[in-house]
Amino acid sequence: MRIEGCVALVTGANRGIGQGFVEELLAQGAARVYAAARSAADAAAMEAAAPDGRVTGIVLDVTDKVQVAHAAARCTDVGLLINNAGAFNRQTLMQAPDMAALRQEMEVNYFGLVAMCRAFAPVLAANGGGAIVNVLSAGGIVAVPEMGGYSPSKFAARAAGDCIRAELAGQGTHVASLIVGSVDTRMAEHVKGVEKSTPRDIARSGLLAVRHRIDEHDTDRHAVEVRAFLARDPHRLRQSMIQRMAKTKG
Rank of each mutant, 00 (worst) to 15 (best):
A131F: 06
T173V: 01
R232Y: 02
S177F: 01
Q104M: 05
I58K: 04
A73H: 10
A231G: 07
D98W: 09
N83E: 07
A48D: 01
A49Y: 05
A37Y: 05
G53Q: 14
I17A: 03
D233G: 10
V133F: 02
Q95E: 10
A35Q: 06
A41T: 12
A45L: 00
N89D: 08
V144W: 11
R118M: 14
L178N: 04
A85W: 01
F111L: 08
A73F: 05
V194W: 02
G112F: 06
M99I: 10
H235G: 13
L208A: 12
L230W: 03
A246K: 14
V123M: 14
I214L: 11
A27D: 14
M116D: 09
I242V: 13
A85Q: 00
K154L: 09
H212W: 13
K65F: 12
A101W: 01
R15S: 04
I164L: 14
V68L: 09
P97A: 13
E146S: 12
R211Q: 14
M94P: 03
D42W: 03
V133Q: 11
G112I: 00
E23W: 01
A71C: 14
V135P: 08
D98R: 04
R211P: 03
C6Y: 00
A96L: 11
M241N: 15
R236P: 08
R90F: 06
L81F: 00
D64E: 07
A73L: 11
A115V: 06
I214A: 00
R221S: 12
L80S: 11
V10H: 03
S177A: 10
Q28C: 02
R221I: 07
T11I: 07
A119M: 04
